[in-house]
Computed example of a mutant assay.
Amino acid sequence: MKSIDPADLAMKENYKILTGTIVPRPIAFVTSVAEDATLNGAPFSYFNIVSADPPMISIAVQRNPSTGKMKDTSRNAAAKGEFVVHITDEDNVEKANETSASVAADVSEVEMTGLKTVSSTKVSIPALQNAKVRFECKVEKIVPLGGTEENPSCDLLIGRIVHYHLDEKVYRDNGHSDYRKLKPVSRLAGNDYAKLGELFSLERPK
């Protein structure tokens, strides 16, 4: 058993251990709108459920390591108070990956990759047409974390879901969804991703 103190490692080494062992990770494909109306799109695999009552999700967005500034998604969410999360699946993962390219803040990754959009129901942020699941979110809280109080290293976005959109093939009834038909894609380490593999069930003890 290898025993390591994270304080002895560089940030990149900690990153490699975390992303190589906390797997698979679901990928949030997020749209947000800048103050100049640029529609931003970006994928994030530091993503999960926070609560079901009310329904909330979390996305950790790392700050720019060289400048310490908020990335577009965090800055836009803070300014507008809204964003849309799409579940990354086999049909949109390549486009999601394309939007992770480093571009200027006034360049729309959504337009750059040719993604089509639809209007949202309860937020002002456009959504992606080719996603089987999307969550319209209002910002519940943004928590700066890591680094120092003056220069945090990331922003934890907590979004309260105010509207769901689920493909009819994915949604069954009474809140149940068919993840086999969703065909979600998860993030591993490096350039690796994973599809749904072998499934098994375990009954919870009573």
Rank of each mutant, 00 (worst) to 15 (best):
S3Q: 11
I4F: 10
D5C: 12
A7Q: 15
L9A: 11
K12L: 12
E13S: 14
E13G: 11
N14G: 10
Y15A: 04
K16A: 13
I17S: 02
L18E: 01
G20T: 04
G20C: 07
R25E: 04
R25H: 07
P26G: 09
I27Q: 01
A28E: 00
T31L: 02
T31S: 10
T31W: 00
E35Y: 03
E35M: 11
A37Y: 11
T38G: 03
T38N: 06
I49Q: 12
A52V: 12
A52Y: 11
A52Q: 11
S58G: 15
I59D: 03
I59T: 00
A60Q: 06
V61N: 01
Q62D: 11
R63L: 05
R63S: 05
S66K: 15
T67P: 09
T67S: 15
G68A: 12
K69M: 14
M70E: 11
K71L: 07
S74V: 04
S74W: 03
S74L: 01
A77I: 00
K80S: 15
G81A: 09
G81F: 05
E82W: 00
F83M: 06
F83D: 02
V85A: 02
I87C: 03
T88P: 05
D91V: 07
N92D: 08
V93P: 01
V93A: 02
E94T: 14
K95C: 04
A96E: 04
N97A: 11
T99L: 02
S100M: 11
A101M: 10
A104L: 13
A105V: 11
V110R: 02
V110E: 02
M112H: 11
M112D: 10
G114F: 11
K116N: 12
K116G: 08
T117D: 01
S119G: 13
T121Q: 13
V123P: 01
P126C: 08
L128T: 05
L128E: 02
N130L: 03
V133G: 00
R134A: 03
R134G: 06
C137R: 00
K138S: 07
K138Q: 12
V139Y: 05
E140C: 07
E140P: 00
K141G: 01
I142G: 02
L145S: 10
L145I: 15
G147C: 10
T148Q: 06
E149W: 08
E150L: 12
E150Y: 05
P152E: 04
P152N: 09
P152T: 04
S153Y: 05
S153Q: 08
S153F: 06
I161F: 04
V162Y: 07
H163R: 12
Y164I: 06
Y164M: 13
Y164C: 09
Y164E: 03
L166P: 02
L166Y: 13
E168W: 06
V170M: 08
N174E: 13
S177H: 08
Y179H: 14
L182V: 06
P184V: 03
V185A: 05
R187M: 02
G190K: 08
G190W: 09
N191S: 14
Y193Q: 08
K195N: 14
G197M: 05
E198S: 14
L199F: 13
F200K: 13
F200A: 14
S201H: 14
L202D: 03
E203M: 12
R204F: 12
P205A: 09
K206Q: 13
